[in-house]
């Protein structure tokens, strides 16, 4: 098997979003900084729920992770549905690339975009919320795994959607609520019992909580539990995408 085909598709996926970097990198950077500015200013006096952790320091990793996962999802889902709409997906389907290669290349594109957005936010926000990377291993593990899972989720949504409207519905009614209810803006320990229970079923919570552990060394649940949950999601979603792609679900008529 030649790696060149796979690498070409990876490069294409990265060049695709880089060619519109104002929309794909700078816009999420600016909107996240606005969140940080407004929430940080207005409720900076609030307790983070953890000792010795200011609200701003608590908020930053949550916002970074929220933006990373949203952008990872957007990348693979947009790329796939645009290819469908423009008809150029057939060029890929006529190529000798396997289902695994196509899936991994799309997801890798999503991972790279998510990571670039995350790094950009971290670098810019460092000027007013200095932070110490407590544990780069956890940070990197959660960042990579989360963007991978959201890339796979975006790929699945892109496969399923046959018009932009459906994709927008998925984004607004699934991704957005799960993100906002994942503990980006608050600690789960501050929630009433029912909502605490509900949060345990939200996979995005584990992504945000684990990532925050990498920044602050504190979290609502053990990072090992979070890592296990995300890994399980990564395996299940990848398997589902690969089976559907191999069957040609919604793409090979």
């Amino acid at each position: 098997m030649s790696m060149l085909g796979f690498l070409t598709l990876c490069k294409k996926e990265i060049n695709r979003f880089m060619s519109v970097s104002v929309q794909t990198i700078f816009a999420p950077l600016v909107s996240t900084l606005l969140y940080l500015l407004i929430f940080g200013q207005v409720i900076s006096s609030e307790s983070s729920g953890f000792e010795h952790v200011s609200y701003n320091a608590f908020l930053l990793p949550g916002l970074i992770m929220m933006t990373m996962l949203q952008n990872a999802f957007s990348n693979s889902s947009s790329s796939l549905i645009q290819s469908k709409m423009y008809g150029n997906l057939d060029l890929l389907l006529l190529s000798p690339l396997s289902a695994t290669e196509i899936f991994l290349a799309f997801v890798l594109g999503a991972v790279v975009r998510g990571m670039l957005v995350g790094i950009a936010i971290a670098l810019v926000s460092y000027f007013w919320i200095p932070f110490v990377w407590i544990n780069p291993f956890w940070l990197l593990s959660f960042a990579l795994l989360t963007t991978f899972v959201l890339g796979a989720m975006g790929f699945l949504a892109g496969l399923w959607a046959d018009k932009y409207d459906k994709l927008a519905a998925f984004q607004n009614f699934v991704i957005l609520p799960l993100t906002f209810l994942s503990g980006v803006f608050y600690s789960v320990s501050a929630l009433p019992a029912f909502w605490q229970q509900a949060t345990w079923f939200n996979p995005f919570f584990y992504m945000v909580d684990g990532f925050r552990y990498g920044f602050l060394g504190v979290s609502d649940v053990s990072p090992w539990l979070s890592l296990s949950v995300i890994l399980a999601f990564a395996v299940v979603l990848s398997a589902l995408c690969l089976v559907l792609l191999a069957k040609g679900w919604k793409i090979r008529r």
Binding site: L4, T8, Y86, L91, L97
Partner: peptide, 24 residues
């Protein structure tokens, strides 16, 4: 193919090079 396609992100020559790349 019978249906015309579009590709808004890459110009023609680059598109052809990408397609060749898919074939290794």
């Amino acid at each position: 193919p019978q249906e015309l396609i579009d590709e808004p992100f890459f110009p023609i020559r680059q598109l052809l090079r990408i397609q060749a790349g898919y074939f290794g």
